[in-house]
Design a protein around this nucleic acid. Sequence first.
DNA 1: AATATAGTTCAACATATATTGAATTATATT
DNA 2: AATATAATTCAATATATGTTGAACTATATT
Lengths: 132, 132
Amino acid sequence: MLNYISEETHPAPVNLELLTERLKVLAEPKRLLIFNLLMEGVQCNCELGDSLQIPPNLISHHLSKLRAVGLVNVERDAVDSRWVYYSINRAALEELNAAFGAFFDPNRIQPRQPKCGPQALVIPSEISVAKK
Amino acid sequence: MLNYISEETHPAPVNLELLTERLKVLAEPKRLLIFNLLMEGVQCNCELGDSLQIPPNLISHHLSKLRAVGLVNVERDAVDSRWVYYSINRAALEELNAAFGAFFDPNRIQPRQPKCGPQALVIPSEISVAKK
DNA sequence: AATATAGTTCAACATATATTGAATTATATT
DNA sequence: AATATAATTCAATATATGTTGAACTATATT
């Protein structure tokens, strides 16, 4: 696991570890397609596999990754418990949306503050003069 | 490259291929830290490496990935072209934000529409009755 | 009780990519 | 001209993870 050591001097507006974890899971073509189908309310393993032409064991694998980061819920059919239904975890999705929006907010972009390069030698003194 | 074949029957609200590509690049701990620093206006390879305790060649590698998907811009120092300055591509970031927000919008979540499982045998006929 | 069904788990394999150290490029300094 | 500097490129390696086929679990049906 990575040491987010720069957090001390350069704090990010969100939990970077959690954000990375979730993005990693979502940044996979087939999982994003599965996620898209779940957004539409499709839920059993079989239908996901049929729609995407992916074998059920692979669907299982990808769903378990999505579950592991809390983005997807599971539920067994009350009548016939062989069927398993998957759904989007709305709270987790809202959390993800908020975190993503906060971290990748274009308004966070700051202009260059040169601490290296030729200008770094010049500008600091100019600033200190300007301040007085 | 994956065939986004389900696009026909289950269209996503955004270009999934581009979104996956960019998320893949961002879903890496060190790159997210680099990105965070760039948001603060830090830009040369050397300072990124110093802050994050990462060798310059590895910084180069990660920056090239970020550049490859258009999220980061490059510029050489006008006075001393040995220095290279990196910055966030604001337009790309705005595009990414919009796409992410559209795809992961919690309001897109639909209730289950059973097409398989025990209830699938019952409900369709009920619907057709209800429609008449 | 035997068989069928929905789904998961497992081990083996394939593939992608992060990491490392050395070599290279291009420019600036002495 | 020789050396130093900032950064990139390259080949080799390590690591993570998607994919596959077979075995397995649990429940339902006949």
